[in-house]
């Protein structure tokens, strides 16, 4: 029965998926920074061009994008601290899983504080 000959996904555990999430958020942040450097450098071209470009960002899609960006930065920062501890704190390896749940917990708390405020700005008008 020759079927689709694709291999299966490796079934890693928390460590592998946190690494995947770290890499994905890292990529997203990189592309944001690329665009961010470009649009900010428009100020040197002309302040009007800068204002025009920034003005186009004021819509709900970009608002959701900003929420995603903050989520990516917060996770990447917190998990980055976890990785530093895993590498350089003698007990870090033993507590890597606990530290991941701490990261997720702090992430949830921070996002719970941020999202209502941000989304009410995006969708509630000024």
């Amino acid at each position: 029965m020759p079927e689709a000959p694709a291999g299966t996904l490796y079934r890693g555990r928390e460590g592998m998926w946190s690494w995947v999430a770290h890499r994905v958020t890292g990529f997203l942040i990189f592309f944001f920074l690329l665009v961010h450097v470009l649009d900010t450098s428009l100020v040197r071209v002309s302040p009007e061009a800068y204002n025009a470009v920034i003005g186009t960002y004021k819509n709900p899609i970009m608002g959701l994008g900003e929420a995603g960006l903050v989520a990516a930065v917060v996770f990447h920062a917190l998990n980055g601290v976890r990785i530093i501890l895993v590498d350089f704190w003698a007990k870090g390896v033993r507590y890597q899983r606990v530290m991941l749940w701490v990261v997720v917990g702090v992430f949830v708390v921070l996002m719970a504080g941020f999202l209502p405020v941000h989304l009410s700005h995006v969708f509630g008008g000024e």
Binding site: G12, R13, G15, V86
Partner: peptide, 26 residues
């Protein structure tokens, strides 16, 4: 090493592989 801990989970001898790698890093 990106500390994914897949190696520690996979080791049939129960070696804490990621820990050993971290010790070499340090």
């Amino acid at each position: 090493c990106r500390t994914t801990f897949n190696c520690t989970d996979a080791c049939p001898r129960g070696i804490e592989v990621t820990k050993a790698i971290a010790e070499v890093k340090r």
